[in-house]
Design a protein around this nucleic acid. Structure first.
Lengths: 90, 90
DNA sequence: ACTTAATATATCATATATGGTATAATAAAT
DNA sequence: ATTTATTATACCATATATGATATATTAAGT
């Protein structure tokens, strides 16, 4: 069973779980993309942090999920990854 | 001359201008989408604010541009507009 | 011209993000 | 098994976001 299948099953059984997952989707989206990009670029948290002039622990805190970053902070991280930040309301 | 044409001309003449515009692009992207969505839904700032349980002045401040919102705040606004927030590093 | 509605701006108290330091926990390398 | 590298977590001082209130300015309606 893949994680996608697991999610489907869990959400069908527990609508509250789905609701709470949905509310945090932007956070998961951000974390997935950052970790994926770091891996593609072969960057550690420490190296990414150095690129944007902060310490490693601040990248870890962002990737932990339990954190509410500002727009400016996300822009900095995007810059460190050589990317642009795009915000969409869909 | 459209605004797009004007931008092209201004940026060619002043690379520093382009750089500073680029740095603020996520903010402009957000503001454009919020105002567009409010207009499509025929919502005033006050009505959008009421939907998410804050005051009108806080929506105005966000739309002013000179403001650094948090992820949570942007999620609230998206919810008020009946939309989902999507963050992409491209 | 006047009134009402909508938006913008300033200010304040409080909550929280950011940057750091330190160090613990885990993973990878040897 | 041990060492090194990487990541996670806690805590702190400071900066700033959030929510409010108040009110000024601008736009729209009459």
């Amino acid at each position: 069973m893949t994680f996608e299948e697991y999610k489907k099953k869990a959400f069908a059984e527990d609508p509250e779980l789905y609701k709470e997952y949905k509310a945090l989707e932007p956070e998961y989206e951000i974390i997935r993309q950052i970790i994926k990009a770091r891996n593609e670029l072969n960057l550690t948290q420490k190296e990414l942090a150095e690129k944007i002039g902060i310490k490693q622990s601040n990248i870890s805190r962002l990737e932990s999920g339990n954190y509410n970053p500002s727009l400016d902070f996300l822009k900095k991280v995007a810059q460190g990854l050589g990317k642009e930040l795009h915000i969409e309301f869909r």
